[in-house]
C-alpha cells in the first residue's frame, strides 16, 4: 500500500485521465482542470474507491489536493 496521497492521485488518473506527474499536495482543482462538477465527481470516485462518505458539501470546502488527502485520512480513521 502506498500513501494516501498516492491513492488519491491514482483516482485522479483513473477517473479523469490526469497525469500523476502533474499533481502535488499543493495542486488546486483549477491547476488540474477539475471544474465544479468534476470536483463533486472526484468525491464520488473517492467514496467508491475507499468505501468512505465524503459529502458533496465537505468536498465543496476543499480546494487543493493536500486538503483532499487530509479529508480522506480523516474519513479512513473514522472507519477504524
Amino acid at each position: 500500500m502506498g500513501t494516501t496521497f498516492e491513492s488519491v492521485v491514482a483516482v485522479l488518473a483513473k477517473r479523469f485521465d490526469i497525469d500523476p506527474a502533474e499533481v502535488s499536495r499543493e495542486s488546486s482543482f483549477d491547476d488540474i482542470n477539475l471544474d465544479s462538477l468534476s470536483q463533486i465527481e472526484f468525491g464520488t470516485a473517492l467514496n467508491k474507491a475507499f468505501a468512505v462518505d465524503i459529502s458533496d458539501d465537505e468536498m465543496a470546502e476543499l480546494s487543493v489536493i493536500g486538503e483532499v488527502v487530509d479529508k480522506l485520512d480523516e474519513k479512513l480513521a473514522e472507519k477504524v
Binding site: L37, S38, I40, K48, D56
Partner: peptide
C-alpha cells in the same frame, strides 16, 4: 448505489 453515486457529469 443510490442517488449519491450518480455522477454530476451525467447530464453533460
Amino acid at each position: 448505489g443510490g442517488p449519491s453515486t450518480v455522477s454530476p457529469l451525467t447530464l453533460p
